[in-house]
Design a binder for these strands. Sequence first.
DNA 1: TGTAGCATGTAAGCCGTTACATGATTGA
DNA 2: TCAATCATGTAACGGCTTACATGCTACA
Lengths: 192, 192
Amino acid sequence: MTGGPRPKLGATAQAALVLLAFGEASGYELKQRADNTLRFFFAAPAMSQLYGELGRLTAAGLVADRFERRGGDRATRVFALTREGHTELARWLAEDTVPATTFKSHLALRLMVGHLADPRRVLADVDGERQRISAERVALLAVVDGLGPDDPMLGWARMVGTWGLRYFDDSMRQLDELRSAIEAKVEGSERS
Amino acid sequence: MTGGPRPKLGATAQAALVLLAFGEASGYELKQRADNTLRFFFAAPAMSQLYGELGRLTAAGLVADRFERRGGDRATRVFALTREGHTELARWLAEDTVPATTFKSHLALRLMVGHLADPRRVLADVDGERQRISAERVALLAVVDGLGPDDPMLGWARMVGTWGLRYFDDSMRQLDELRSAIEAKVEGSERS
DNA sequence: TGTAGCATGTAAGCCGTTACATGATTGA
DNA sequence: TCAATCATGTAACGGCTTACATGCTACA
């Protein structure tokens, strides 16, 4: 229709389609969905970005918007996948290659020059990272438990959540090991 | 000097300072350093970005550039930390908070809607991810081994590398578990 | 009455990648 | 002489965040 090779969707657009595959939603609800799920292993797009993507997807015909009365008098703009949107989702899953996972640890960057830092500060940074992950684990566990074992459509989401829990567990163990290694190292150099 | 609150350095600028802490280098060499180390747990900035950052850091006085003859007649621009650069690095380590690790798994995004995809394709995606990590592990191991146990200045780098190896090992185990869970799930639904 | 949550957007700017452009040196 | 590597940049574009701007509704 539009001519030329379809200008591949960006990652956020794909994420929006994925979220809409779980049912229609307003931009605001979509943001909440993202914060409950995608945030743990993908991204938590800003509201402004979500609305932007939804506008573009609507213009492209992959998503349809309609207005619904909610509460008193307020009109909410509700988005849903169109048939074209479903097709694009299927095409994406079947044809596009999976980009590599990206991982960016600011803690690791600092540790590269750990010899220039106060050892106590370094250990505190490691502890902070561990606490962050621990808190994320708690939050993800609540989400996974909230999914309930009944709904079969959420089976894949639950599986991803379980994977995430395992990931967080391992990450904490890695940080514990790392902390021990740092302690050993700084004791060694204090001694010398 | 410049007045106003120092306009915090970006992540790539910090990475450049960290790399230069291991000794002076040309932009080209810095890129190689990044590809050997930072790439595994932080980022592999494009050359163009590196040159851009080096220019800005030089203008800011954190880095000094000088020209050196290398090979025949060729002048290479070599960058080194200035005293100010060292100070900024120390300030960064002592004062700035550590941003959270970012993690973005396109595989996980797809698995959220696994029920819309061909199961064989899903398993192939998992296998592809595992192979990618496996290859990264091999590359990182070569780098860590190449560091040699002698140089004490590289001790922290070696520690980060060891952490990375552990991370890759765990990631592969997570993917193996995930694969089993997917196999169980698709067999279950084929049966019904 | 006021505050938290619902709801929707625009504008500016940074960060980062890809594509483009150029040219010297080394070794097979 | 040809290819790989060394070496340095500019331009355009896209993705994403932050800040700004606005207003309604439910509930305590």
